[in-house]
Amino acid sequence: MRPTSISSRVEGGAPAPRPPRGAAGDAPSARVWLSGPYVVLLLVALVVPLAHLGAISIFTHHPRLMFVAEPTLENYARLLQPYYLEVLVRTLRIGLVTTLCCMVLGVPLAYWLARCGPTALGIGLFLLVMPMMVSTVVRAFGWMIILGRNGVINQISVGLGFERWLFVMNTETAVVIALVQICLPLLVLPTLASIERIPRSLEEAAANLGASPVQLFRRVILPLAAPGIASGAVLAFLVAIGVVVTPALMGGRGSRMIGNEIYDQLITALNWPFASAMAIALIAIVLGAVIASRAAAAAAERFRREAARRRASAGGA
């Protein structure tokens, strides 16, 4: 069977068959009403707070009243200072490196989970998801115990007669290590779902046609799992660039991320307008990332189709 997500993506010229509609869906008014609770929830839980945040971000900071309703762009202008740009670049760098590491580790893991037996899948999913129930603080302490100056790895090393050699705590690397652990399930789960929808017969067909395991992975699994990998990567990236606790505990004084700045301005400095401006900037980046990834996927697909059509017509078929 064809995976539905693929077919809707690939169908292109031919109109994709509409899913059958239930009786309730037949009257347009009924459909509108059904979406009512969601619209209300969206308004109350997302649009209103976001508008509030946006409004505060252009207000003037006041040390005692928090803010006064005098519109200003100063909060945003402050973001353009080299220090904040540096924090921003570091945040995006940590997010990208984390996402890439998650992909390198997560896609093969997702493939293995999708193709292993039900028992192994159950155990694997449990091991993957269970850490999500532990707070990031506790997880960071766990990493300190393993990676610290006097951590397990160095102690074993000393016990074996070697020197301490692992000095990764309080660096950007440590932040990435902890973030990969946090974000890995977010990448693996959607990827797993999309690989599970790829029929095994496609893999057998590819092998039969002479594709080595690497070629099989690159030419069949990756393109067909791409939507899942992409949504997982976006999720992982979004979570990675929004963290506060992990860089505070794992990173050194020089690995601050945008989340730390927001937290400090909000809680320590009580500068809500500036914190809101940073939050809005972060949200804009997040939206930009989502839109860019969508656009990139669409462009890649268009390009691929175009190329395929050109090759086909050039082949004189």
Partner: peptide
């Protein structure tokens, strides 16, 4: 002290932590 909370935090982050 409170008036300068936000600005000095920024200087602290920029000049001390960096």
């Amino acid at each position: 002290v409170n008036d300068h909370r936000s600005r000095y935090l920024e200087r602290w982050n920029r000049e001390v932590l960096n």
